[in-house]
Amino acid sequence: MPSDAVLAAPAVSAPVTATPVLRVSGLSVEYRTARGVVHALDNVSFELAPGETLGIVGESGCGKSTLARAVVRLLDPSAGTIRLGETDITHATRRRMRAARRDLQMVLQDPAASLDPRWTVGDLLAEPLEIHGIGSRAERRARVADLLDKVGLPPEAAQRRPHEFSGGQRQRIGIARALALEPKVVVLDEPVSALDVSVQAQILNLLTDLQRTLGVSFLFIGHDLSVVEYVSDRVAVMYLGRIVELGGRDSLWRRPAHPYTRALLDAAPRIDGPSAPAGPGLTGDTPSPYDLPSGCRFHTRCPIAADVCRRLAPAMQALSPGHHVACHFPDSGSEPPSMQSAINS
């Protein structure tokens, strides 16, 4: 494990050159409920390169958790495809999916709920190996010790049960469990949202270290902008089931082109940011997913909405290589003053 204070991150914001480990295209998910059909995810496409972290950020109801669940096939998509390496897993059966899961794992938000309280940590970490018939009993035990070491837990942890650990320690166990099968892709659904700042820093550092040593790709779902910015190489911003902007982390933070991205960055105060928001902020609430706005779904709250926005959903367009936006009037100009001060300070 590296001991230097600064880590080199993989190349940022360049167009993806290596063969993607995960390719999602045109993915849609619909729920049928008593109140009607909810279009939770609408035509979402992205690729994930080896060793890369793609952050997915947005507010409640934007579909980021639905996306995470659809990618690991906890939900069935209604349209689109999901490719894991060369395999199309969009409609894979439970049996076919089992093999794919060796390469595709997930860390859930609340390890207290996802780790069986009756099992010891050792058994919980050995379970994925047992399911896939990997190794002998002794080999699995050795692997458990190795996993505990990787996530910074002492070997004695194997004999304990999940409730004996703190929130941060439990999330380490959740991460170790997801890494047990040496997957190529790990979906992380708000893995640090329930943690205190100092513990959050421990987990974020751990994730960065693990990615560097294992070369695993992360799909990182989050709502905290500074956390997503910190861990991601590229970031997709979602609003009401659609990706509205996708770009390299720096490109997106310096030159946010979608008015929603700008409002989001402006609304989230940070200790090293400007002391007051630059704009007036968004008014009103996110519209109900049962009754989606026509055209561009953001037009009801958008400060620059025009007639065309109400009629036509904007298509994704490239602003610069690797930076895409879905807006009829993207701000392709220079850095907005507020963001400039945020970055320079």
Binding site: P154, E164, R172
Partner: peptide
């Protein structure tokens, strides 16, 4: 540097 080994 290293993630501190957590005490239980």
């Amino acid at each position: 540097a290293l993630p501190e080994t957590v005490s239980l």
